[in-house]
Design a protein around this nucleic acid. Structure first.
Length: 731
DNA sequence: TGAGCGTACGCCCCG
DNA sequence: CGTACGCTCA
């Protein structure tokens, strides 16, 4: 028992042992807050005999939730299924799965993402106000989401003169409700509504959750704060962990003032300050402190560490962004030779499109990498198309998915027809299948027939779903629907098809989690998991360099960190003109810097190509906030100013030469995130026999760079493919 | 209906 | 530079 606390310092122990009543832990970066949270949970279970199902822990990211679960399992030997450790959104989804029928929705509701929401709003705007300027779309979209994030009462946010946004909002909610869909914001809002409207339901959870823990409290918005209060009821055993210096989500309504509000709402709170850092060397911490000191609105906090000063922080400026990339990949290879592993590195950037330039370079140097984020796997067109089919298995009232499924592949059903079906559905209060049954009454005969055929195939899929293994079921839909056949014409067929295969294996792996449920429920939960996630979950497993935004790096640590694109206008972002926005950017910089354990590289380029324009850059003001004595200057600056060593200036020349020698890759092989998974080195030569997972047997006709031409048997014929694609096996 | 082309525009971050 | 969307024509 006592060994639970063995590795904690005095302050951390205090945070663990103070179990009763409200506690606020101010946890600096790298101060071991996850240890505190998990040890506290373990302590409650083992020492205080609290049942694990009476504890609720809320995090902001799936990653954090996963990590916390793993660590609690290690400490307590309890099963994951008993644990309520989740993000706000998946917590709400779980509650709503049980109770949403009280609010008039159906149990099998589906969760839509941001893109879907945008699409729906756009359609509504077009239908309701065809004369409205398309530019208004963005404003309306922003308004609706801001409104949903700030307050539960929509009237708060609309000025009375502007009823267009309000009108669209109502239509949008109506659309979601009719189609049994909820967006991310609804997950929170509907849960709040549920607790408010049904005190008896609220009471169940008030009694259940005797101990509530909230991670990253500085990032809660008003809606989330209200939700926490509702979950607590009269209970005061609330433990929050936060660090206002790491508040980086103001753009989605995060409110630092919630920390102050907490103090007012729970006046007898106990506060613990965690300032000892276990992550970074003191040079890195000093730089972080020097940066964040420039923010006015903060409680002064000083991080310290017993790790010694460590290496100087390297500041590198490339002549162009190509040099920047080249420098980084060289450093990585150099450090790998010295014993670092690829997984020890992270490349952090302010905006996603800066990652693009790394892909060519890393591929050509065979540096394994994974890009976390943006073009999320689940947002890819082929994946969303397939999900639409799966949703059709579960629901005949989800018009949104119907629209997508019936249009991919094209079945000769266009916008006009879909609109007529929709109108008919609303007019007679029918679901999609009923409206299709009657379609001969309001549509032409051939169109009506096509619809009925589609309906029948969905019905067929529903039957097959019950009898086929999931793997076979996926294959069946893909071929029977004609989706695969149509996809073959797509120039990105290779990518898209391997994504579908990957999706199939994700479904297959995850189905085992839900063995107790019915098959329908299993699918429902699988789809829910997918909607709430935006990552592939396997970043940690492979040994590879991580590329991600600073936002997604929060909570993580790496031995070596490169923060790139440190130029005014990029980081800090150009719009950060107002003081509080600049302070948020600075907190973001603080987060970036404090990810590094041993080595920190701050890089930029003298000339950068952005949005098709080549421009001279100005070094980020955040870099200037770091004392020179902490920095070792390399690259362009040291070269031109003549202050650098001979070695560094030599490096610049080498990298310039290399970047001009490096062949420019064809656009077709610029690859995105998952592609290292699809990558394997095939030693192919002209005349080799190969096996392709999709096309079967074939023979190599020619090899040109990374591409090869292979002749397959009928009906596939001659294909131009990536030589190293994982689908190809030499025979 | 939908493929194909030309034009406008973006300053991003998450569940 | 990319892409997303609107328009035109088969």
């Amino acid at each position: 028992m006592s060994n639970l606390l063995e590795n904690l310092n005095e302050k951390q122990r205090e945070a663990v042992l103070y179990t009763e009543g409200p506690v606020m832990a101010i946890a600096g970066a790298g101060s071991g807050k996850t240890s505190v949270l998990t040890t506290r949970i373990a302590y409650l279970i083992k020492k205080k005999n609290v049942n694990i199902s009476n504890i609720l822990a809320i995090t902001f990211t799936n990653k954090a939730a996963r990590e916390m679960k793993d660590r609690v399992i290690n400490l307590t030997d309890h099963l994951t299924s008993e644990m309520w450790i989740s993000t706000f959104h998946s917590f709400c989804a779980k509650i709503l799965r049980f109770h949403i029928e009280s609010l008039g929705y159906k149990r099998g509701f589906q969760i839509i993402d941001d893109d879907d929401a945008k699409k729906i709003i756009k359609d509504i705007l077009k239908e309701e106000k065809p004369e409205a300027d398309v530019k208004e779309l963005k404003q309306i979209r922003t308004k609706i989401s801001r409104m949903k994030n700030k307050s539960n009462n929509k009237n708060n946010d609309f000025d009375k003169g502007n009823d267009l946004a309000s009108e669209i909002y109502d239509e949008y909610q109506k659309y979601l409700f009719t189609n049994n869909l909820v967006d991310f914001d609804d997950l929170l809002l509907l849960t709040i509504e549920l607790f408010k409207q049904f005190p008896e339901i609220k009471k169940i959870y008030n009694n259940k959750f005797q101990y509530v823990l909230v991670d990253e409290f500085q990032d809660t918005n008003n809606v989330q704060y209200e939700l926490v209060s509702l979950i607590l009821g009269d209970n005061k055993n609330i433990f929050i962990v936060g660090d206002e210096d790491q508040s980086i989500y103001a753009f989605r309504g995060a409110n630092i003032k919630n920390i102050r509000k907490f103090k007012e709402d729970y006046p007898d709170y106990h506060i613990v300050l965690l300032e000892e850092n276990y992550r970074s060397t003191n040079n890195i911490l000093r730089a972080a402190n020097q940066i964040i000191e420039n923010n006015d609105n903060r409680i002064v906090k000083k991080l310290f560490s017993s790790k010694g000063n460590g290496e100087l922080i390297v500041k590198y400026k490339g002549a162009t962004e190509r040099d920047e990339v080249e420098y980084i990949s060289k450093q990585i290879l150099k450090l790998v030779r010295k014993g670092f592993e690829y997984r020890d590195f992270a490349v952090l950037y302010r905006m996603n499109n800066l990652s693009r330039m790394f892909e060519d370079n890393f591929i050509s140097k065979h540096i394994p990498y994974g890009i976390v984020g943006n073009t999320s796997f689940y947002k890819r067109r082929e994946i969303k198309d397939f999900i639409a089919y799966l949703r059709m298995i579960l629901s005949s009232s989800d018009f949104f998915s119907f629209e997508r499924a019936i249009s991919n592949p094209r079945r000769g059903i266009g916008k006009k027809t879909l609109l007529k079906i929709k109108d008919y559905m609303y007019l007679y209060d029918l679901d999609i299948f009923e409206a299709i049954d009657k379609s001969s009454e309001y549509l032409g005969k051939s169109v009506s027939n096509k619809l009925i055929i589609f309906k029948e195939s969905i019905e067929d899929y529903r039957n097959k779903f019950e009898v086929l293994a999931l793997n076979d079921f996926v294959d069946y839909i893909l071929s029977d629907s004609g989706y695969l056949k149509a996809l073959e014409k797509d120039e990105k067929f290779d990518d898209r098809y391997s994504n579908l295969l990957e999706f199939k294996s994700i479904l297959n792996e995850n189905q085992n989690i839900y063995t107790e449920s019915t098959k329908q429920d299993m699918l429902l939960y699988l789809l829910e998991d997918i909607s709430l996630k935006n990552d592939e979950n396997n970043e940690d497993i492979d040994n590879r360099v991580t590329l991600m935004t600073v936002h997604s790096a929060k909570g993580l640590e790496f031995r070596v960190v490169f923060v790139i694109g440190l130029e005014n206008g990029i980081f800090p972002m150009i719009r950060a003109s107002e003081a509080d926005q600049l302070e948020e950017e600075r907190r973001l910089m603080y987060v970036a810097v404090t990810r590094a354990k041993e080595l920190l590289f701050l890089t930029n380029a003298n000339v950068r190509n952005l949005y098709g324009e080549s421009k001279h850059t100005v070094e980020s003001l955040f870099v200037k906030e770091i004392d020179d004595e902490l920095l070792s200057v390399e690259g362009y600056d040291s070269y031109t100013r003549g202050t650098g060593s001979f070695r560094t200036s030599g490096q610049v020349r080498t990298s310039k030469m290399l970047s001009s020698i490096l062949p420019k890759k064809a656009a077709s092989i610029i690859k995105r995130k998952s592609n290292l998974d699809n990558y394997k080195e095939n030693d192919l030569n002209k005349g080799d026999k190969v096996e392709h997972t999709k096309f079967g047997e074939g023979m190599v006709i020619s090899i040109a760079g990374d591409n090869c031409v292979i002749a397959f048997e009928h009906p596939h014929g001659i294909k131009k493919l990536l030589k190293d694609h994982a689908a190809i096996t030499k025979k």
